[in-house]
Each structure stands twice: as structure tokens, then as C-alpha cells.
Nucleic acid binder design. Structure first.
Length: 291
RNA sequence: CGCGAGGUGGAGCAGUCUGGUAGCUCACCGGGCUCAUAACCCGGAGGUCGCAGGUUCAAAUCCUGCCCUCGCAA
């Protein structure tokens, strides 16, 4: 942001809170960066009360951009800066409105996604679309790769297309409500692998959940995370979750339909490892059934 | 003071409980063998056992402090 033609007048972010190992005090990266650059920062606990932010009104603000804030934006803010509040959403709206668009688009096996610059309205991600930048998702991409791609595209939206809109060169388009889909929040329970799922679904799940700290299965009571995998659709009669064999493609595991090949894994308390070196130090038993 | 695991040749681990020669799989170098293989056989190099103290005739191993990595939970 600091490179664009905008001057950042103020930053509002969540307050510092205790978190992480040892429950130490941590602040958001935005907070840290803003402090370094001597930009005024507000960190209200809640936005229900408008008083803490009153002083924002006196600033010369041409646009308010909301990025990944996690708290519901109250209507008084929209009123203060009417028609000047924008949001960058990490999907091609109206598909995947809501909390976890990147994860859901990978879970669904979407071949395309993108970022959307929209107007903020009281309804969730339902604002008029100012501009969208799309791209193809390859089988090799996981959710982190997608996010990384989106970061650069988001920057383009901010630095190029937002100014164009503010100058009147772009007119917003309303969303097609009939094709809207919603990306619900991801629950912890969704991170455990259900081996009766099809290999294709599990392959998508592995890629999608990387950004959520990875999917896992249980081996003799210990968590084994799966960071990357491959799959086939061969039919078989084996029990779901059974370790079949190890070959150049990975560690072959039977699924509800087809097989998943584990390529990068991580056991509790250890580092992420390619499957070959991992098996050297921790030989998984062929024939074991993952839970 | 949220709970827990770990730091040992280049990689991954065992050894720590019960102190006494630095071990295994792989990679690497040299040699051999095979039509062939993540192949096999023989030989070799490579380690301040995270750091700092302490106990001991003797510490990877026991005690204390610190650094770093990771899993869970928030």
C-alpha cells in the first residue's frame, strides 16, 4: 500500500491480545507495520460504540478499504463515509460470499477464482462489483499458493482500479443474486480426514486446508498431518484408510474410491517432511488402518 | 505462568529411564557386480551429541539456567 498514490491516513485493527504458546501478547502484523510507519492506529475492542472512532470523521478520507477485519462493520461507519467504503474479497463474487472463500473454492474443485473489489453494503459481500481480476487454479496449487497470487492481484485492484473508479472511469455492476453461494466458516472437525471420502475430494481437501494448518489423520493415536498428496481413481476392495505401499508417487492409502498418495507429512511435534525421509525415521506399517 | 513433543555426521532417527568404545536407514566418495531396478556386494570420509554451568574417576545420558523448532489449545 505504501507504494501507491494514496496516503494512508489511519489504521483500525484489532487490539493486541494474548495468544500463541505461552499466551504471550501478540499484535496483528498490520498494527506493527502501521506503528513503524507512524500511521495513527485505532484498536477498538468492539465497533458497537461509535465514540472511539469519532475522530476519524475529521480526517480527509477519500476511501475506506476494509480487508480481513473479522468484526461486523456497523452501519454508522457506512453512513459516515457513504459510498466510499470498499472491500477486497478473495473470490469471484457472487460465488463464495463469506468467511472462507479460498478454502471453499478449492474444496469444490473450482478451476478458476480471483479477487473482487466491491462496495461495502450492510449485507454480507453483496455490494456492487467495481472490478474483478481472475486466474486459473492448477492441480499443483494449494490454498497458500492461491492466497499469494491474490495478494498481488489485490494490490492491483487497490492501486489501479480503485482510483479509476474514484475518477468515474469505472461504473460498478450489481451482483447476480441467483448465482450467489456462501463459504461458511471452517470447523475444526473438518480438518480430520474421513477416509471413506473419494480420493479426488480428499486431494482437494488437502490442498484447501493448507491455509487452515493442514488436514490430519491418526496413526496409533498421534496426529499425522498431510501437507501435500496425489491421487488416482483405481477401484479396489480394500478397507478405507489402509496403508497399501510406498512407491515413487508417495505412500498409497485406500480411500472410499481410489487411492491417495501422501507426499509431504508431519507427525506431532516434528517438522514437515517429504514422505521418503519421513519413512526412514518413522516407518509406518503397511496394512495399518488410519483412523 | 494454558497443555505437550523435540534439538545426536549432509537428511531422517535410535541410544537418555538403568552414566562407561558414537549406532541405524539414506545421501555422499572410491571399488565391484547386473540387460535391468528407490537394485545388490565391498571399502571410505564426515559428529563441539542446541548453548552455558554443576555433580562424577567418567556425562549424549543425572541436576540447574538459557536459546531454538514443532503439535494442541485459545
Amino acid at each position: 500500500m505504501e507504494d501507491s498514490q494514496f496516503a494512508v491516513q489511519a489504521v483500525v485493527t484489532k487490539p493486541e491480545k494474548t495468544s500463541g504458546r505461552g499466551m504471550k501478547l501478540h499484535s496483528s502484523p498490520v498494527y506493527t507495520l502501521a506503528k513503524q510507519m507512524n500511521i495513527p492506529v485505532w484498536t477498538p475492542l468492539s465497533l458497537k460504540d461509535s465514540k472511539p472512532l469519532e475522530s476519524l470523521k475529521s480526517l480527509d478520507i477519500s476511501a475506506v478499504v476494509v480487508v480481513d477485519y473479522g468484526l461486523i462493520l456497523p452501519s454508522y461507519l457506512l453512513n459516515w463515509f457513504s459510498n466510499r467504503v470498499f472491500n477486497i474479497h478473495t473470490s469471484l463474487l457472487p460465488r463464495w460470499r463469506g468467511a472462507a472463500p479460498i478454502v471453499h473454492c478449492l474444496l469444490a474443485g473450482d478451476k478458476k477464482t480471483g479477487v473482487t473489489l466491491q462496495k461495502m453494503v450492510p449485507r454480507l459481500d453483496a455490494g456492487d462489483i467495481i472490478y474483478q481480476l481472475g486466474f486459473d487454479i492448477s492441480d499443483q496449487m494449494n490454498s497458500l499458493d492461491v492466497l499469494k497470487k491474490m495478494e498481488s492481484l489485490s494490490f492491483q485492484l487497490m492501486s489501479k482500479y480503485l482510483p479509476l473508479f474514484l475518477n468515474g472511469a469505472i461504473s460498478p455492476v450489481s451482483q447476480d443474486e441467483s448465482s450467489a453461494t456462501y463459504a461458511s466458516k471452517i470447523e475444526k472437525s473438518q480438518l480430520k480426514i474421513n477416509w471413506s471420502d473419494s480420493s479426488g475430494d480428499l486431494f482437494n481437501k488437502v490442498r484447501a486446508m493448507v491455509i487452515k494448518n493442514g488436514v490430519y489423520t491418526l496413526y496409533q493415536g498421534s496426529r499425522l498431518k498431510i501437507w501435500s498428496a496425489d491421487y488416482d481413481n483405481e477401484s479396489h476392495q480394500e478397507e478405507c484408510g489402509k496403508i497399501m505401499l510406498y512407491n515413487g508417487k508417495g505412500l498409497k492409502v485406500a480411500c472410499g474410491q481410489g487411492h491417495l498418495y501422501l507426499k509431504e507429512v508431519q507427525l506431532e511435534g516434528r517438522k514437515i517432511q517429504k514422505i521418503a525421509p519421513f519413512l526412514r525415521g518413522f516407518p509406518l506399517k503397511t496394512g495399518y488402518i488410519f483412523d
